[in-house]
Design a binder for these strands. Structure first.
Lengths: 340, 340
DNA sequence: CTGAAAGCGCTAACAG
DNA sequence: CTGTTAGCGCTTTCAG
């Protein structure tokens, strides 16, 4: 219970030197004689000195902090992305300020504004909804910023980003289904993640075209309302029946949570997966491997997405030129798909 | 792309007043005439002024930031706890600095030290390993700190904490099994979470005693190595067989992930749950409801744990006196347990 | 090698 | 109501 926090001045007084000398000694400046340097360091240790990072930041104009905005921490997808971010950040001496947007532009902007006031060195935004119109609102992004899987259609030129190739992922999923002999393939999507849903749907449709397979409107079900990813399960549960009624023998789901919901619905309806119906998810969250049957899915390397984004930000902070990255997802074949 | 960030001095110059006036006007001081106040605010807006939080913090000695240490963000349990923390923090104008400890005391202390340097207003630590010996190392905790489900046996008097009642939870789990007619009940635990594992094991044993049921050494399996919670699944998978071999008809698992592993092992061994073997988990993570059969478990109100801990910290920051909290878990009966 | 002085951007006495 | 002056705790010229 030390009453007042001690400063370099306190140490200086006790050591009979100037606070400048203490400052230098503590940071191993070559300007200080080894002898006094050690003395001062020892004294600082004894006195329980802890440098004031705020004062340092004010002076150096660096906070060694980055801000991260995700839609929700409880979302297993983003949890892992953040884990990847944190790993790289910490190994570079940066701390992470975390905020949530709940897929809401206002909250997203509020979070970024807050980061801006706190003078974070850089910002990472996942699933961003920001578009060119908002651009000016958010302090013209003087702070280096990297977007992860941005949902913005018309991204300003200046944006840095890393994203998964949604289109490719969808193709892999549907091609897998086609290769198993399925000819009536449905798509179960979500309306609140405009860009990625659109790209996945396009991938789906393209593969059907290429394979000369029928494209029926009723084979596509999009849940329009806004959801948190957790309730994606509910989306899957509610939307699956109509797809089954429309006669599909397989369904490509927007993501794993939707697929889980679809699977739950199947159990309830007495439809066995994969015998009666094949299901493919997207994301590759751990959960998918634990359910019965284990879920065939398109895996996004979540940890890597986080790491790559953070690394990109690090490069930006060192004024390196960076190139936007598009990572490739890949198929994980498990038990929820079978030959027709 | 504004080159240099503008300060209140810049505004003052342009407005022909002193920077003090600007400072006051911006913060709605009643000392400023309404007229100039509005003028200044307008000017600030036009100039795109964003107050420098660092400078404010240095002056006011408050950072409006709290530090949170969890073992892993990708752990669904902590992810939800953090979500709860963030909710309350944000609604109180506080930002969250997040760090991970990976169940490692050194990393935990490093994280806390870092928070200390950054002069966070308060600290939240989940699953802490810190004991009295470390107490002095971490800057004698001059910063208000609340521990969540601390794993420390001999907690210093001065610690503030919120924890789940592990002992009660274990009792509920085993009593449930007993009430279903089970007489040979096993416990599958983990060795790297000393306190909570110990309490759950005690609860288990007490109920067996009270019910005059046999207590066989081989019915208790504890995985000693350190794990991340994710690999708790592996623990369950590896340890279950020996319990089955020892002849149990039901198993109380340390947590849901362990139970998931146990379930996976059962599938592999051709043991059907719950017909041949009943399984009870602990935590109540979402995943448990999606697997087959859905997991009977002891639920910890994770979101609430986070909220309560954060609220306690808030109270501490306002110098209110707080009482340590012990929250009660409860049984969620689902499909993994059945009458013997 | 060391110290004096300035200043990072803001808030808060203390005068007028 | 407004301005002057310190000062939060540190780093960084600039002189010795």
């Amino acid at each position: 219970m030390s009453k007042r926090k001690i400063s370099i001045e306190d140490i200086a007084r006790k050591a009979g030197v100037s606070h400048t000398t203490v400052s230098r000694a503590l940071r191993d400046s070559p300007l200080i004689s080894p002898k006094v340097r050690e003395e001062i360091k020892q004294l600082a240790r004894e006195m329980g000195y802890v440098p004031n990072g705020i004062a340092q930041s004010l002076q150096t104009q660096k906070t060694n902090t980055i801000g991260v905005v995700v839609t929700s921490i409880a979302d297993p997808f983003f949890a892992e992305v953040v884990e990847g971010i944190e790993q790289i950040a910490r190994s570079s001496g940066l701390s992470v300020l975390l905020s949530t947007s709940h897929r809401n532009v206002e909250q997203e902007i509020a979070a970024i504004d807050n980061f801006y006031r706190r003078r974070v060195d850089g910002i990472l935004v996942a699933d961003s909804r920001i578009n060119t119109n908002h651009t000016q609102q958010i302090g013209q992004i003087a702070t280096p910023t990297v977007f992860i899987n941005s949902q913005t259609a018309n991204q300003p030129e200046s944006f840095h980003s890393v994203r998964i190739d949604d289109y490719l992922g969808a193709r892999l999923a549907v091609q897998h289904l086609v290769s198993l002999g399925h000819t009536s393939i449905g798509y179960l999507g979500v309306g609140d993640r405009s860009l990625s849903n659109q790209l996945r749907q396009e991938g789906y449709q393209t593969v059907l075209s290429e394979a000369n397979l029928p494209q029926i409107d009723d084979w596509i079900a999009i849940r329009e309302e806004d959801n948190t990813r957790t309730s994606d399960v509910v989306t899957g549960q509610q939307m699956l029946p109509q797809l089954v009624k429309a006669g599909v023998t397989s369904v490509f789901c927007y993501n794993d949570m939707v697929a889980v919901g679809a699977l739950l619905a199947c159990k309830k309806l007495g439809i066995s997966v994969p015998q009666d119906l094949s299901l493919v998810g997207f994301d590759g969250i751990a959960l998918g491997g634990y359910i019965t049957p284990p879920l065939t899915t398109i895996r996004q390397p979540m940890l890597e997405i986080g790491r790559v984004a953070m690394q990109m930000l690090l490069d930006l902070l060192q004024d390196k030129t960076v190139e936007n990255r598009v990572l490739s997802p890949y198929l994980i074949e498990r038990g929820s798909t079978a030959r027709k």
